[in-house]
Simulated assay, not measured.
Amino acid sequence: MARQRPGDGPATPATVALDRAGIAYTRHPYDHDPSSPSYGLEAAAALGVDPAHVFKTLLVDTGRGLAVGVVPVDGQLDLKALASALGSKTVTMADPAAAERTTGYVVGGISPVGQKRALPTVLDETAYALEVVYVSGGRRGFDIGLSPADLAAVTRAVRAPIGRRVS
């Protein structure tokens, strides 16, 4: 996967962080529909990829601060599994305003990469079976594709089974 030129999509804190780290990635801007019920499924359709390859970034409150769970958009975050992976007794979904303040991104465009403050991050183990995963590039209507190993490296993510399939 080759690094893209700056004109191939917006520069965001995520792309800046990846460029600084020397990580290869692809940029995938698309026309975002504000009325879409699911940003992640919208991204998968716009990119023409299986939703299991597109991952959403969800913030949780551990009681000691915020943390990040990254799971496929066609599934759900298992809060108990994420709490266990983080060494917490329980976690709850973070307040959206707190998530935006802490990450520097807007809800629907929160990237696991390039956040204002590095947060504990857990990447669902299903990502590791894929050659490329797609995550928000830091704006609604903009995803980035990169290897799961590179995503884990740049976010210092731990690997754990934190997602569950939706039937």
Rank of each mutant, 00 (worst) to 15 (best):
L86E: 12
A52Y: 03
V49Y: 03
A46F: 07
L77P: 01
M93C: 02
V73S: 03
P72D: 10
G69L: 14
A46M: 11
M93N: 03
E42C: 05
G65K: 12
A52S: 07
G69M: 14
G75E: 10
T57Y: 09
V54Y: 04
M93Y: 02
G69F: 12
A43W: 02
A85N: 13
Y39K: 00
V70S: 12
A45H: 02
A85L: 15
A45I: 07
R64L: 12
A52K: 08
H53W: 10
A46W: 05
P51V: 01
L41Y: 04
L47A: 11
S88T: 06
A45M: 03
G65F: 09
L77M: 13
L47E: 09
D78P: 05
D74Y: 09
L79Q: 06
A46R: 14
V70W: 08
G69I: 11
A46Y: 04
V60M: 07
D78K: 01
L79V: 03
Y39W: 00
S88M: 15
A46Q: 14
P72T: 00
T57G: 07
V60R: 00
V91C: 08
A52Q: 04
L41Q: 01
V70N: 06
D74E: 09
G75D: 02
L79I: 05
A44T: 03
P72N: 07
G69N: 07
A43M: 10
Q76L: 09
A43R: 03
G65A: 10
T90S: 15
L86S: 05
